[in-house]
Design a protein around this nucleic acid. Structure first.
Length: 580
RNA sequence: GCCGAUUUAGUUUAGUGGUAAAACAGAUGCAUGGUAAGCAUCAGAGAUCAGUUCAAUUCUGUUAAUCGGCACCA
């Protein structure tokens, strides 16, 4: 997929297209005022103040038409440089542009671009003429807070994208269509993986097929973490308010927490697993020799997410974090983080997921602890990443309130990024809970702690996997692994049943399609349901005592001895193969 | 939570100010031997609460959920 922001030519073209959009909007809505119109990965947008007017989806066509008209007219685009005073004078009736000018550095070059009857304050560069802006499409319209702050008023934002050929534009539109087909919400319904009831917005229900995915992921997780030296716990869903006051959640995370009164005391349902983990650590004394302690928990958390934020399995109100807390000595931090980064990399490779890492640093306002502690924690994370040989993007101010973090972001089918894994250094909780270990010299020392998840949430991770595999899961995860279809129930059912029995005895999730239907009908359904292996059992197979299979997505038929077939599948499962 | 849109059967869609149409899925019967939809019958629907109207699924508003964004975030 093309990243418009990073493609130099397309970047300029899209930026010019944003100006073209603004010009067209100005023609149709003369009172419109413009904030900013930047280029983004998927095109561009422009934020517009239309007063009481509202642009609706159907108005986009009208605006597009006006844009085409202006483009055809083919005016040149002129650059002009201004002094600050000239600029303030020129845009004196436009509070948005004045705001921009006033926020520019003293030595900034102030320039504006003019095309026909439209002038916009802009750094540029731009294409030389509006006539080269031809292959574009306005995609959506939405509200967007002025300066990205929900306390400010809402402007109207129009999104669009522009290419240098009609063909590329069409390709992109086709890509959007294709992406819709792998939307996990649609596939979740089609494949009976999960459901969300209107009685519980954001609270997913897992259906039998989805449960198998979950179970496989959980088993794999336990297996890998055991190998990595983790031990496992389970802490309560609900704990009393005092605990959340100690942890800081009560003051920093209260609006996202569900609470309840029990025996006249306030309890909160856990939005995070850490405080419970702290209590477990404190349950016994620890020697320096025992560190690092890696303590895992598949913990079900509840968070009151804003209604507008909910989205399928990607953003829900209860989810299971594949959490772990690692308690260690300061001298163990770096090696432990490097080890973790590599562990996460290994886990994602199994799913063939690509990702990138971001380092999120101290939030500007909502944080606990000392700035020096934060700085130290941030530099430890940075150094560990560098030593692990990972590139990363800096995400200033995006850390959790208790510490900086490394975020592992995975893309969905539409190119949107979702945070899955995260490594968060917490230099606050050990302090707040007065965690200690006994050092070599018998003195009490404070351990440092990491919170980390790899899947992030099992819910979100499954959502990503559904889209990533378009519902055709690797054999080891697939809810149904083998579908057995006898051609004629009268003659082949008995043999088919025998095969099903052997497959099941060998641990393969098998179903028998013995419905009284024509073969073509059953084959079609097998394809639609994306069963990985479909066995067709007819006279030939009965006579030769063999099986014939067709792999999902292929039209080839292969005939094998049953034992060979089982061996092949077991190998595919064992290796967690991804068949493309 | 904010801006905008949407809501018809289990699913996907049509249509209408006066009896709501279909495909797939479901039930029943018939048909069915080689790789993507056999036939017939049956059953099943306008989210919510109001308003306008002789009459509302259709118009207006409400609430809810969902979708696209924003803000927030795993």
């Amino acid at each position: 997929m093309i990243n418009i922001k990073e493609d130099k030519d397309l970047n300029i073209l899209n930026h010019s297209c944003a100006h073209l959009l603004a010009q067209a909007v100005k023609h149709l809505y003369p009172h419109a005022k413009f904030w900013v119109g930047p280029v983004i990965e998927n095109g561009f947008y422009y934020d517009i103040d239309l007063g009481d007017d509202v642009i609706k989806e159907e108005d986009l066509q009208k605006i597009e038409k006006e844009m085409k008209k202006i483009s055809k007219d083919g005016k040149r685009i002129y650059r002009e440089e201004l002094t600050r005073e000239e600029a303030l004078e020129k845009f004196k009736n436009d509070e948005y542009k004045i705001d921009l000018i006033n926020n520019m550095d003293d030595d900034a070059v102030i320039s504006c671009y003019t095309q026909g009857d439209f002038t916009d304050l802009c750094r540029g560069p731009h294409v030389e003429s509006v006539k080269v802006i031809k292959h574009f499409h306005l995609l959506k319209v939405s509200g967007a807070y002025f300066k990205g702050d929900s306390k400010n008023k809402m402007l109207q934002r129009i999104y669009g994208i522009c290419f240098d050929s009609e063909e590329k534009l069409e390709d992109y539109m086709n890509f959007l269509e294709e992406a819709k087909k792998r939307d996990h919400r649609k596939l979740g319904k089609d494949l009976n993986l999960f459901m969300i009831s209107e009685y519980g917005p954001g609270f997913p229900f897992w259906l039998p097929n989805g449960m198998i995915l979950r179970k496989q992921l959980e088993n794999f997780w336990y297996e890998q973490h055991t190998k990595e030296g983790y031990e496992f716990i389970q802490t309560p869903i609900m704990l009393s308010r005092e605990l959340w006051e100690i942890s800081g959640h009560w003051f920093n995370y209260r609006e996202n927490m569900y609470t309840s009164e029990i025996d006249e005391k306030t309890f909160a349902i856990k939005p995070m697993n850490c405080p419970g983990g702290m209590l477990v650590y404190k349950n016994s004394l620890h020697s320096y020799k025992d560190l690092p302690i890696r303590c895992g928990e598949l913990g079900l958390v509840h968070r009151h997410e804003a209604s507008g934020a909910l989205s399928g399995l990607f953003r829900v109100r209860n989810f299971t974090q594949d959490d772990a807390h690692i308690f260690m000595r300061e001298d163990q931090m770096e090696s432990e983080i490097i080890r973790l980064v590599n562990f996460i990399d290994r886990m994602y490779k199994v799913f063939n997921l690509s990702y990138h890492v971001e380092l999120s640093t101290r939030p500007l306002d909502k944080y606990i602890g000392e700035i020096e502690t934060w700085d130290r924690a941030e530099s430890i994370l940075k150094d560990a990443l560098t030593k692990a040989g990972k590139d990363f993007k800096l995400n200033p101010g995006d850390g959790a309130f208790y510490g900086p973090k490394l975020d592992f972001k995975v893309r969905d089918s539409l190119g949107r990024e979702w945070q899955c894994g995260t490594i968060q250094l917490d230099m606050q909780l050990p302090e707040r809970f007065d965690l200690t270990y006994i050092d070599q010299d018998g003195s009490k020392k404070r351990p440092v702690m990491i919170h980390r998840v790899i899947y992030g949430s099992i819910e979100r991770f499954i959502g990503v996997l559904i889209e990533h595999f378009a519902g055709s899961f690797p054999l080891w995860m697939a809810p149904v692994q083998v579908n057995v279809i006898p051609i004629n129930n009268e003659y082949h059912l008995e043999y088919a049943k025998k095969i099903v029995k052997v497959l099941e005895e060998n641990g393969l999730r098998t179903i028998l399609d013995d419905r009284d239907e024509k073969l073509g009908y059953k084959i079609r359904e097998a394809q639609v349901k994306k069963y990985p292996y479909n066995l067709i059992i007819g006279q030939k197979e009965v006579d030769e005592n063999k099986i014939s299979y067709r792999r999902h997505g292929s039209e080839e038929t292969t005939t094998l001895e049953l034992s060979e077939f089982i061996e092949k599948l077991q190998k595919e499962i064992e290796n967690k193969e991804i068949v493309k």
